[in-house]
Design a protein around this nucleic acid. Sequence first.
DNA 1: ATGTGTTAGGCGAACGTTCGCCTTATCGTT
DNA 2: AACGATAAGGCGAACGTTCGCCTAACACAT
Lengths: 346, 346
Amino acid sequence: MAKKVTLKDVAKHAGVSYQTVSKILRDQIQVTPEVRVRVQQAVEELGYRPNVTARSLRTQASHLIGYSWQPSRQNFFSPVLEEFEQSVVEAAERRGYHILLFPQREGIDSFKTYEELAYTGRVDGFILSDLGYSDPRIPALQALKIPLVAFGRTNCENRQFPFVDVDGRAGVRQVVEHLLDQGHQRIAVLGWPEESRVGTDRLSGYWDGMEAAGITVDRAWVKRRAGEYDYGYEAAHELLELPAKRCPTAIVTVFDLIAVGVIHAVEAKGLVVGHDIAVTGFDDVPMVPYLRPGLTTLRQPTWEVGQRTINILVNLLEGNPTDTQQVLLPPELIIRESSQGYYQPS
Amino acid sequence: MAKKVTLKDVAKHAGVSYQTVSKILRDQIQVTPEVRVRVQQAVEELGYRPNVTARSLRTQASHLIGYSWQPSRQNFFSPVLEEFEQSVVEAAERRGYHILLFPQREGIDSFKTYEELAYTGRVDGFILSDLGYSDPRIPALQALKIPLVAFGRTNCENRQFPFVDVDGRAGVRQVVEHLLDQGHQRIAVLGWPEESRVGTDRLSGYWDGMEAAGITVDRAWVKRRAGEYDYGYEAAHELLELPAKRCPTAIVTVFDLIAVGVIHAVEAKGLVVGHDIAVTGFDDVPMVPYLRPGLTTLRQPTWEVGQRTINILVNLLEGNPTDTQQVLLPPELIIRESSQGYYQPS
DNA sequence: ATGTGTTAGGCGAACGTTCGCCTTATCGTT
DNA sequence: AACGATAAGGCGAACGTTCGCCTAACACAT
């Protein structure tokens, strides 16, 4: 590192006290134009940059925001989180904050993680994503009185905390209604097990839609299992082997990759997706636009989630009057060929 | 934020001087067992955590590493960088460092970015990715004597700097040799324009392979254009319209998405990928495993790149004797169906 | 008794800021 | 001529550490 230029150096060079330099640079004081110019020149010449560490120590604010999430397994992708991260970084930067990464590796000594999170003074606040049911990070941070905003909800019933989330339930309901509009009646759904909060949320949108339409749901149409591509592939095979009268004409899934598995299974059976059977996904992952046929899916307003999250947090940090602290955003239904064949109900 | 517990609080509670507490906690001093226990109990009871900001100020080391990259456009994916980031974060954490994000938005006031980078004392060193030709960040950081390690090379001829990179040239050469082994002779290549450093690097592997095999390359086989899916789709159409004698039997691309475009174009022409024509990609992006037919491609050892990058940087920061500071890793050839039809040369 | 070495722990200073109070000079007013 | 108000800028202290040096106490050998 280069020899540091400090306030004192600048002050000496400009012939004033270093505290005065500090104040001039932050516009906290009135000085004669002449002095101001002298100081600015000195700053320029010496290439002075304030030392953020010292500033943080003094002001008790690091202007750093911690971001804690669960890194995906290697070579496995979570594009939603990728975009969320981008958005958060961008929004934070615009408000004068930077993002510090705190991956939350599952299993591995989660105690140590809280140590990390607690690390005094390192960050002013936290953004959490990948919330689990009753996520332990929330009480931990709240005990330390560190402000936080979460991407997603959790089931800490008795705890209030600010969050931004996407309304998966409303989204899936919208999908179901779209399929009903197309004439479908026997609609199946591939969900995730109960342990998955988002999975459960999305699945309930299916029930909402079916119930509202007054359709009695065949138990065989509803599957709840962990997995992605393979799950979709296998489950679709099972569904398609149901007797003709019970065989679904549409398959709703809670994740695009499951839908891809379904599509491949459908095609392996010699059926045409979008014509013989409709398939839908969730997330609009980056590979989807390159899929044929195009996959009807729900796109999360990820960018906006990130922006809102940071806004809430920064308002919290800076003590601004903040509007609502719990935001639920609707996903956007993207209709493509996979749900658009002119299907004729039998 | 909760009321801070400082060394002085602990000291008072344990009945020693606060400096002694500091030394005990860092094992810098010998004390009677009795005192040690008293101090540890006080730490426990009060829930003391060292204030990293103060520590940084004193030791002149933040144990923070800046990571600067070019965020992809929205809803556009760069899975390689995603995995790189993960790897970097993980490796850094293991050595006691954290990662601070410094996105480098193109165009937008790049001057301000350097201000940011220069921000005194905030970070101990930098990791750069997405190097451009003669990347301006490198001289900027070197002028400030801030250690850096890059993912990728650049053409700052006269500058030496540590980097880790993937040998795209050797990779593509390997692909070409693989195709030659399959009996292909008329091999086309879809590259990127000269402005792209990686594109140029990868393209040269094509020339290497063809030259070594003694094949005269038809100028029409080599395309250099910016783009991805659409580029592949259009370029493939052009290639397939060449007269039979000059029409390529294999198309090498410098990126998987280009290859996906090619595949779709080939299929649109009624040809069978892997049988009538071979196609290869680069990167093994996450969607590739779900493609049919499977795409032959080159996988970057992204995880290892991240690990090596951090190791070099941390060694630099801590003044450890470091072995080599310029590392070139070979990508791994993944052979799938798209290049495996039994093609019979005409 | 005196000197010498070792051990346990205290103490002052420094890292580079920001903050609040204080001083001095200038000017206008009564 | 004396007073007060305002403007310009200085000064000491503090944020919570770490670091190097110092001291007191004790043990041991002379």
